[in-house]
Amino acid sequence: MAGSTGWTEPTTAGHTAAGDAWGRGSGQTPSEFLENPSQSSRLTAPFRKHVRPKKQHEIRRLGELVKKLSDLTGCTQVVDVGSGQGHLSRFMSLGLGLMVKSIEGDQRLVERAQRLDQELLQALEKEEKRNPQVVQTGPRHSPHHVVRWVDPMALCEELLLPLENSPQSGARLLLTGLHACGDLSVALLRHFCCCPEVAALASVGCCYMKLSDPGGYPLSQWVAGLPGYELPYRLREGACHALEEYAERLQKAGPGLRTHCYRAALETVIRHARPELRRPGVQGIPRVHELKIEEYVQRGLQRVGLDPQLPLNLAALRAHQAQENRVVAFFSLALLLAPLVETLILLDRLLYLQEQGFHAELLPIFSPELSPRNLVLVATKRPLGEAFCVLETEDS
Rank of each mutant, 00 (worst) to 15 (best):
D213I: 11
P214S: 12
G215K: 06
G215T: 09
Y217M: 06
P218T: 02
P218M: 06
L219H: 00
S220W: 06
Q221E: 12
W222N: 06
W222F: 12
V223L: 09
G225P: 07
G225S: 05
G225R: 08
L226Y: 04
P227Q: 02
P227N: 04
E230D: 14
L231G: 05
P232T: 01
Y233E: 10
Y233P: 01
Y233R: 13
R234W: 10
R234K: 13
R234D: 13
L235F: 11
R236T: 04
R236Y: 03
E237Y: 10
A239S: 14
C240D: 10
E245N: 08
Y246R: 10
A247C: 10
R249E: 13
L250Y: 03
K252E: 13
A253Q: 12
G254P: 02
G254Q: 10
P255D: 13
G256C: 02
G256S: 10
R258T: 06
R258H: 00
T259D: 11
C261D: 06
A265P: 01
E267R: 14
V269H: 04
I270R: 06
A273C: 11
R274P: 02
P275Q: 00
P275G: 06
P280E: 06
P280Q: 09
P280M: 09
G281E: 12
Q283P: 10
Q283K: 13
I285E: 04
P286E: 02
R287T: 05
I293H: 03
E295H: 08
Y296C: 02
Q298M: 08
Q298R: 15
R299W: 11
L301S: 02
Q302S: 15
Q302E: 15
R303I: 08
R303S: 12
R303N: 10
V304A: 00
V304P: 04
G305I: 07
G305D: 01
D307L: 00
Q309S: 15
Q309M: 08
L310C: 09
L312D: 00
L314A: 03
A316T: 02
A316C: 11
R318G: 03
Q321D: 14
A322V: 01
Q323T: 14
E324I: 05
R326K: 15
V327C: 10
